[in-house]
Write a protein that binds this DNA or RNA. Structure first.
Lengths: 126, 126
DNA sequence: ATAATTCTACTACGTTTGTAGCATACTTCA
DNA sequence: TGAAGTATGCTACAAACGTAGTAGAATTAT
């Protein structure tokens, strides 16, 4: 499931804390974002339609909850870049990342540790 | 400069070989893509408008050339994911990548080599 | 109970995307 | 030199996005 930019913002607040009322989402949106309540409402409803979010009701008030996991969304986003921008080649993308981004020595070390630690072969997890 | 999905396809053929005529692009598009000549033309022109591609003419025929570098496009795409999906935190994204993707032992080793090789501290490059 | 507030449902509307047709002008080959 | 093919510029148009208003229902506070 592909998310658009504003949808990411909404989902992020939802992942951080849920269930949430539309009002909650509005309030927890990054301060740089100044959407009208109705805008957020519309987007929430569209996300429900897309099945990225589920909606229940307590009394008259709608409660929204992520249905799409953050992990899955991240996976989709990365795979998209991987496919479009690196023709699906994982190695080159990783190479690009460590080459292009300026990693601190600490970050590099951290990564090496992660990589070394994962000696066991991991099964697919879809 | 953000590229849309079909734009990536066009740009990819352009990066692979350029300058190219509209016809060339049509032909080099992945076989799964079956766009009409005019569709490609429209997209090329929109890319020109966006300044992602430059256009010159030899006689009556337009020659297109990437103006946006592949590297820059990749950077933008990755930064977008980084910002939206990982709140700009590079480490966690890398962690996610090595955690989530099932790397082969070889790939891991390769990465470790890359990482270890880059011991010199690299200056910022924005 | 009633006024004020808050939600919800529904609608709106300009822009961008995705995809392509048409008419016209140019090129080329028989 | 005219027919066939190709390129170009312009137009079209539906779906998705991004953003928000309005009206009426429900809740709350006085």
């Amino acid at each position: 499931m592909k998310l658009t930019e504003p949808e990411w913002l909404i989902m992020n607040t939802l992942w951080d804390k849920h269930p949430a009322k539309a009002r909650d989402v509005v309030e927890r949106l990054p301060s740089s974002v100044n959407w009208a309540y109705t805008t957020v409402k519309t987007m929430l409803d569209r996300l429900v339609e897309k099945k990225a979010v589920s909606k229940s009701k307590r009394g008259n008030t709608g409660l929204y909850e992520p249905r799409l996991s953050r992990r899955q969304a991240r996976r989709t986003a990365l795979r998209m870049v991987l496919d479009r921008a690196f023709d699906g080649a994982f190695g080159p993308m990783m190479y690009f990342l460590v080459e292009d981004e300026s990693l601190s020595a600490g970050e590099r070390k951290e990564l090496i540790k992660i990589l070394s630690g994962k000696s066991r072969s991991k099964g697919e997890q879809k």
